[in-house]
Design a protein around this nucleic acid. Structure first.
Lengths: 259, 259
DNA sequence: TAGTGGTCTAGACCACGAA
DNA sequence: TCGTGGTCTAGACCACTAC
């Protein structure tokens, strides 16, 4: 990554807008332009960098979408105050994760039931009307060692084709990821002390700490699935890396009425 | 927020490129254009939407930056294949979080030391050259109850002004957020069983499960800080909501009633 | 080598909102 | 009001790479 501490040195970036962006960014990150500082207006930047307005506009728009600057009509463009920290967490597909670790993957289904949703099921899926659901409980194995314990509920109204799926080739999470488009997801991460059954299944000490990842996904307004995945604490961490200045995965333009 | 299942309905978005983006997005998210599907080339989209190439290019570039599509020269633009799940996690500013819960915030500094970095410090900050660091250990309180225990290391080479900061008004995390711009952050989430000292400080049962959030930030290539925050498992969950279809990661109150 | 995306220009009109 | 950003056009040349 570029040193980004010498604002006067034009980075030999491959394109004009990238080099302009690098120069403005380095001024901001170095503190030369502190939060609240007004950035030259587009016409001045045009003259400074001898380019068209579209080019500087592209740069400033991108810096704004990354939260480095804030743009206000008539007022100008300002260095944004350091914002809340976001982390773009990649939620693991457990099978892919295990294979990626070079281990052999295996799935053991402990329980499977198709039923009309109970009140608890409906609460978990945030639905009000009863309907068919598929409830499962299974263990992911990595090289024959228990890796994670998962409880999953699938809304068969939204995903009827799950009813007859054996999940022998793909575990439910992977199967859903590959076959059902989703439009919204909610994740919640916590920690628990393993109860005796969980401890026994995962092969951890009684009362051992575990990481719990709860996930719910929707397709439009229709719930798709709710799942709780329990990882032994020793063997797993969720990792996120976020670089507003150069990451590939970008976040949506920040809401202006941010607190 | 729209259902996003009817791709033929132009969204009444405020600008042309936004409405085009919404239409392409809905085709992708609805599954009408599955992963691997080739999107019409820019000239065809120009004709379809009766606009200039700059406009469709802007749309496709943005979709690519968000990971929804992949662009390859000479080959075309394709719907991105791996629908990896991402979660946009809002990393909490502990003080703001506590105040947001309606509780009174207090900070108790347990230890503070300015020193030349030890080998362990350098490893934690991922630096090779020795230099001055500030190491701290403190407790966040919510209404006089322990809320989180934090161990933090600040690189005084990058942030020399931290040396004389008392952190009486703002805890180190909030202070850094407000005063030091950052360009990259890495977060890692795990679970631990509280050791006796931690359990005593946090007021949890011996061996009780805790959620651990480790955070490292950089400004350019220079490390800023590394921090480990330990939350009692019972009272805290990290929540993320992600909608690739243009949704925003909204702040969600920590659901305490979650089972 | 030809098709596709990547970039850039020199204008233009419009919308917003601070002065 | 009117300065500033927001958007859009109709071209142009270049870079890359799959065919």
């Amino acid at each position: 990554m570029a040193d980004a501490t010498n604002p006067s040195t034009p980075e030999p970036a491959v394109s004009l807008h990238q080099s302009i962006k690098a120069m403005l960014q380095s001024r901001i990150l170095s503190g030369e332009w502190p939060p609240g500082h007004r950035i030259p207006i587009e016409h001045e930047l045009m003259k400074t960098y001898a380019c068209s307005r579209m080019t500087v506009s592209k740069v400033l728009t991108e810096l704004a979408s990354r939260g480095l600057v804030e743009r206000r009509r008539r007022a100008g463009t300002f260095v944004a105050k350091p914002r809340l920290q976001f982390a773009l967490l990649q939620i693991p597909d457990v099978k892919a994760e295990i294979i990626g670790l070079g281990a052999a993957y295996a799935l053991k289904i402990l329980a499977r039931a198709t039923r009309r949703s109970t009140a608890a099921d409906r609460h978990r899926l945030s639905i009000s009307q009863p309907g068919p659901v598929l409830a499962m409980r299974y263990l992911h194995f990595a090289d024959a060692r228990p890796f994670a314990l998962e409880d999953r509920l699938i809304d068969l109204t939204t995903v009827p084709q799950a009813r007859d799926e054996s999940f022998a080739v793909e575990p439910p999470g992977s199967w859903l990821l590959a076959h059902v488009p989703w439009s919204a997801a909610e994740h919640s991460i916590g920690a628990i002390n393993a109860d005796p059954e969980t401890a026994s299944l995962l092969g951890v000490a009684p009362n051992g700490a575990c990481l719990v990842l709860s996930r719910r996904t929707w397709r439009g307004a229709a719930p798709v699935t709710a799942a709780d995945t329990v990882f032994p604490a020793g063997g797993y961490r969720l990792v996120a890396r976020f670089e507003p200045g150069g990451g590939r995965a970008d976040r949506e333009a920040a809401p202006k009425n941010q607190a």
